[in-house]
Amino acid sequence: MLVDLARGALLVVAAYLVIGLLVAVPYLTFGIGRTDASAKTAPWTFRVIVLPGLVALWPWVLRLWIRPGRPH
């Protein structure tokens, strides 16, 4: 029972991260310069540094991409 629960939870986490990657890579390629001007001319190493966070917080990234604007 516990093993099944753990397997299920890990599957959900894996699916979440795959979706995160599918959102993060196009956002880094096409979206980030439009939603944040300071990222437009940033080097590729910057994009590597922020990638894990973009994958983990992809719902936030989607929201940012669809409705740009800095929060206060």
Binding site: D36, S38, F46, I49, P52, A56, L57, P71, H72
Partner: peptide
């Protein structure tokens, strides 16, 4: 991990300070 992954100023600007 979440703290390390969001430690860049990009995150501070885009998540908002709060």
């Amino acid at each position: 991990f979440l703290m390390a992954a969001t430690s860049h100023d990009f995150w501070l600007a885009n998540l908002g300070p709060r």
